[in-house]
Computed example of a mutant assay.
Amino acid sequence: MDKLLRLWGLPALAVAIGIWVGGCSTPQGTQTPGGNKPEVVSTSTLITDWTQQVARDAVNLTSILKPGDDPHIYEPVPADTIALEKADLILYNGYNLEPNLIRLIAAAGIQARKVAVGEIIPPLELDEGTRGKVPDPHVWGDVKNVIKMVDLIRDELIRLSPKERETFTQNAAQLTQELQQLDQWIGQQIQTIPVQQRQLVTTHDAFQYYARAYGLTIAGTLIGISTEEQPSAQTVQKLANSIQRLGVPAIFAETTINPRLITTVAEEANVKLASQPLYSDSVGVPGSEADTYIKMMVANTIAIARALGGQPAPYPRSPSVSQ
């Protein structure tokens, strides 16, 4: 010890011993200083995108659903339970979009604050036959609704981490500005479609909010809200007959649903199946044309306008959109 004191001096030796002791006493798996950020879990890829843009690196964000996952039929895995049990805040869509995850979130062992982000929006309803009228969970189809949801996410993040208020507020304001631009642009592109051709036929009931907000008519869907449904041959033929009667120029598959049945409808109706399927319940994989909400909505709008006879203009460049 005397030799160490002569070589290093007392202050330096104290620091060295402190580092050694601290390093030895840190339990395995605990976070180091600067790593103890709030734990936030989101269900859908859409909520993940909005939360990431508002929070940036101020929270540890875990997304349960991955790009391309279908929230209607997703089956939780053990890792999902672990993430939810560790969470300080859970953000989910609600209105039964992700039924299996909602049941898991409601479990007694999940102590985090739970927020149904989509349920801030008064829902449109859809008639589900024997189930009667139910809330339509696809609220993000109207960009104005997303602006309200971003405000809610901002407020929940501030409640979770008040010291980051300014960061969350500034990021949310920037995202809101981009969403306002997107909302205006979508309306302009749909207006380029001839009036009689503004009719949308998709695989499932995911575009009611989009259609109502931007001036389209839902001319038909193959199945209802949930992608679990299996349409009968009679349903397929009925939709094909309706498409022929209305003179719909094209119909659309969706990226999260097997295109086989909607392809059969197109063949039966002798109508074009649009070359670009629509992104309904999930953003695209990283690096794709639709790997953020804004890019997803741009891709959908261009695909719809082109297939229905419109002439969409390129989307203006913004921090969230590359072209």
Rank of each mutant, 00 (worst) to 15 (best):
R260G: 00
V298Y: 05
N270V: 07
E254V: 05
A266E: 03
D281A: 03
V265A: 00
A253F: 03
M297L: 10
I294P: 00
A253G: 11
A274R: 05
A269I: 07
S275A: 15
A253S: 14
A290P: 00
N258H: 06
T263Q: 13
E254A: 07
I257H: 02
T264S: 14
G287C: 15
N270R: 15
E254H: 08
T263F: 05
A290V: 03
M297W: 04
T264E: 11
V283C: 12
S275C: 08
E267H: 14
P277Q: 08
S275D: 15
N258G: 06
Q276D: 14
E267R: 15
I257G: 02
D281W: 00
G284Q: 13
A290G: 07
S288C: 12
E268N: 11
N258P: 03
A253H: 02
P259Y: 01
M296R: 07
M297R: 04
P259F: 02
S282L: 09
E254F: 05
N258K: 09
L261S: 07
I294R: 03
A266H: 03
A269G: 08
S288R: 09
P277G: 09
D291T: 14
I262N: 00
P286R: 12
S288F: 09
V298G: 02
D281F: 00
E267A: 12
S288G: 12
R260T: 04
T292Q: 04
A269Y: 04
L261E: 06
V283G: 09
S288Y: 11
S280T: 08
S288W: 09
P286F: 10
V265T: 02
A266G: 08
D291R: 13
Q276M: 12
Y293S: 01
K295Q: 15
N270I: 04
V298C: 10
L273K: 06
Y279E: 04
G284V: 08
T263L: 04
R260H: 04
I294E: 01
I262T: 01
L273F: 06
V271W: 00
T255Q: 12
L273P: 01
Q276V: 13
T292S: 15
T292I: 10
L261A: 10
K295D: 07
P277F: 04
L261C: 06
A266L: 06
S282C: 10
A269R: 01
V285G: 07
N258Q: 08
P286Y: 08
S275F: 11
M296Y: 06
V298I: 14
Q276G: 08
V285K: 15
T292Y: 03
P286C: 13
T256A: 09
N270M: 11
I257T: 00
E254Y: 05
E289M: 13
E289T: 15
V283A: 12
N258W: 05
S288L: 09
T263G: 07
Y293V: 02
V283N: 13
L261F: 06
T255V: 15
D291Y: 14
I257Y: 02
V271Q: 00
A266D: 05
A266I: 04
V271L: 00
D291K: 14
V265D: 02
V285Q: 14
T264Q: 13
A274H: 09
L278S: 03
N270C: 07
P277V: 07
M297C: 07
A290W: 04
V283D: 05
Y293C: 01
V265K: 00
V298N: 03
A274P: 06
T264F: 03
N258L: 07
